[in-house]
Design a protein around this nucleic acid. Structure first.
Ligand code: MN
Ligand code: MN
Ligand code: ZN
Ligand code: ZN
Lengths: 139, 139
DNA sequence: TGTTTGACTTGGACAAAGTCCATTGTAGGA
DNA sequence: TCCTACAATGGACTTTGTCCAAGTCAAACA
C-alpha cells in the first residue's frame, strides 16, 4: 500500500477519493512531478478531479511535511514524496530528468563566517546539473 | 562608467538608449533585480522603454554571459551582473535580501561517484537560507 | 442506519511572470 | 544624407498558480 497515504491517514485527515488518488500518484522513488503532471495522472483514475483540488492537496501535504516542493528549473514546482530523508538533486540539463542525491560533507560548514554577512544561516539547497546517461548516448 | 556597458560595446552590440539604460540599472555589487524591477528603474530614466525590450535585453546579456539568471525563490527570475566571479547566494527567508557568497571547498567534489547515476556532472548551484541581521533585529 | 455539519471539491475568474509577433523606429555604415 | 538590417513597441497569448462562492460528502452521532 501507500506509505504516504498511511502517514496522512495517521494524522487524522478526512479521506476522500481525490486525496487518495493524489497520494497514490506520488508513490515511488525519484518522483518529482509537477502539479499538472499529478493532475493528469490523477484524472486517469478519477476523471473529474479538479486542478484546484490537486493544488490544495499538494499544498496540504507540503504543510504537513509529507511532501517537499522542489524547484530545479524556473518552470513549475515539483512535488517530491521523499520528505523524510534529506537530499539534494541532480538534474539533466537536456531532458530534465531528476535524481535524488546524498552528497558527503555538509555544505553549511563550507560557508565561512566572514561570508555570512551577519545572517543566521539555517538551510542550504544544492542542485547539481549535468547530462544523464540517456542523453549522452543519444548525443 | 559602466563595466557592463563597456564589455557589451566591445562585443559589437548596436548601442541604443534602451540598452544603455538597462546596463546602467544593473551596475553594482549584490545586485539581483527582477525584470520588472529593472523595468521600473529604467522607466525613471527613459519613460517609454517597454517591458518587452527589458526582457529582450536581459535575455541577450544572459546569452552573452555578461549577466546571470538567479532563481532563489519561485517568484520572478533575478538578473545578476556579477557574471565573472563564480559565486552562490545567501537569501533572507523573511525579507528576501540576497547576498553573493563564496564558500570554501568545492561542492562538486562532495558528490560521490555512486551518487552520480552515470550523469556527467558539470555544475552545481547552492542557495543558503537564513535570517538577515536586519530581520533579526526587528524580530 | 439516517441526519447533520463542517470540511472538501469544483469550475471559473483572476493574477504574475514571461513569450511572441506584426508593426514602427533607428543606429550606424555606405 | 540615405538605407536597411537590427531593435523597440504594445498588445495578445501562455503558463503556472491563487482565490472564491456554491455545491457535495465523510464521518461523527443519535
Ligand atoms: Mn527528491
Ligand atoms: Mn549574485
Ligand atoms: Zn537527459
Ligand atoms: Zn531579512
Amino acid at each position: 500500500m501507500s506509505d504516504l497515504l498511511e502517514r496522512l491517514r495517521g494524522r487524522g485527515w478526512r479521506m476522500t477519493a481525490q486525496r487518495r488518488v493524489v497520494a497514490e500518484v506520488l508513490e515511488g522513488d525519484h518522483v518529482h512531478l509537477t502539479a499538472d503532471e499529478v493532475h493528469a495522472r490523477a484524472v486517469d483514475r478519477l476523471p473529474e478531479i479538479s486542478r484546484a483540488t490537486v493544488y490544495n492537496t499538494l499544498g496540504e501535504m507540503v504543510s504537513l511535511g509529507e511532501v517537499i516542493e522542489v524547484s530545479t528549473d524556473r518552470r513549475a514546482k515539483r512535488y517530491d514524496p521523499n520528505a523524510h530523508r534529506p537530499h539534494h538533486h541532480l538534474v539533466c540539463a537536456r531532458c530534465g530528468a531528476i535524481r535524488d542525491v546524498h552528497p558527503s560533507g555538509n555544505p553549511l560548514a563550507d560557508l565561512p563566517d566572514d561570508e555570512r554577512f551577519g545572517f543566521t544561516v539555517s538551510d542550504v539547497e544544492v542542485t547539481y546539473r549535468g547530462i544523464c546517461p540517456n542523453c549522452s548516448a543519444t548525443a
